[in-house]
Structure formats: C-alpha cells, structure tokens
C-alpha cells in the first residue's frame, strides 16, 4: 500500500519537475534560444512538426534521398544523410516519426551549399525517418524505415 503511494508521489513530482523545466525553458530563451524554432522542436507528432515548420503537407519526391542503415544496432547513434537533386534548396530537415519529438534537426542552406548533409541522430525505436526539403519555396519529402534493435532515448 505504501509502495503504491510512493509511486504516485514520485510520478506526481516528476511531472511537476518537468513543468518547471519547461517553464524555465520558456523564460531563459530570451538570450539563448532567440532564433531557435521552439514550436517545431517541441511538436510531438509529424503533422504538428510540419505545421510548425510551415510545410503543410509536403509532396513525396524521388529527388530526395534519405540514407542510413536498414538496421541500427544502437539507437543512440544512427548515421543519417539527406541529399536532394532539386533546384534552389534552402532548407533540409530530418524528422523521426516515433521519437518523443519528431524533429531532429533543420539545416538552412545558403546559395552555394549543396543539398547533401550527413549527421547522426538518436532513435528511441524502429521508425520511419523523413527528410523534408524546401526547394523553390515548395516542400518535398522522402522517407526510409530504420529498424532499431536497442533504443537510444531514455533508459
């Protein structure tokens, strides 16, 4: 009986702590996160993220490629690359559908920078990875499923 009460207490204070952290996160950004797209990174689902990025419902495109392993043994370090052959690409974003927050990273590419970026991301579980690309003001998307055998988020 007591044990149960403990659990409730714990989860209650955990939630409160999270709330405080979130509040702290909202107060500090004045200096630190001035330009950081908080709403996009905080969005949970794919649809909300796309909305926050102003992408609406992007069209699938064969000219966008997502590269990565078919099976990632360690979800904490999954190499992912995005390349695209569309003209005038100004932005590339990597989204992971089943992560707690879908958006992993956005890249703003000035003229002269090739639409070819590679990075490493964390994945909590097997999920589709989406590459979102902005070309001539329109959004395009491509996807790839990566299976994760050991998750990289949480313990």
């Amino acid at each position: 009986m007591n044990n149960q009460r403990r659990t409730v207490l714990k989860s209650g204070s955990g939630a409160a702590l999270l709330g405080m952290l979130a509040a702290a996160g909202i107060i500090t950004p004045g200096m630190a996160l001035a330009d950081w797209n908080k709403s996009a990174f905080d969005a949970k689902s794919m649809a909300d993220t796309l909305k926050a990025l102003g992408a609406g419902s992007p069209a699938d495109s064969k000219d966008v490629q997502v590269t990565g392993p078919d099976i990632a043994e360690n979800g904490a370090v999954v190499p992912v690359g995005v390349s695209a052959s569309l003209p005038n690409i100004s932005m590339v974003a990597i989204l992971i559908e089943k992560n707690p927050n879908a958006l992993a990273a956005t890249f703003v590419l000035p003229e002269g920078t090739e639409a070819n970026v590679q990075t490493r991301v964390k994945m909590g579980q097997t999920s589709n990875i989406y590459a979102l690309v902005k070309s001539d003001g329109k959004f395009f998307m491509a996807t790839k499923e990566i299976k994760v055998t050991l998750g990289g988020c949480g313990g």
């Binding site: 958006l103 990273a105 703003v108 000035p110 070819n116 990075t119 490493r120 964390k122």
Partner: peptide
C-alpha cells in the same frame, strides 16, 4: 564571413554530434 550552413538541432541529435556538408567554392 559568409555563412555556408546554419543548423538548428533538437535533443534527438546524437551525443557528440557529427555533421558533414559540402559547399561550392
């Protein structure tokens, strides 16, 4: 002085982030 790449990361970028890109010039 010219910016060739600017990124925004979320927490789901891996520990010790790696990044590779190319630009003309």
């Amino acid at each position: 002085d010219k910016t060739v790449l600017s990124c925004e990361f979320g927490p789901s970028v891996s520990k010790n982030p790696y990044l590779a890109f190319k630009f003309k010039g």
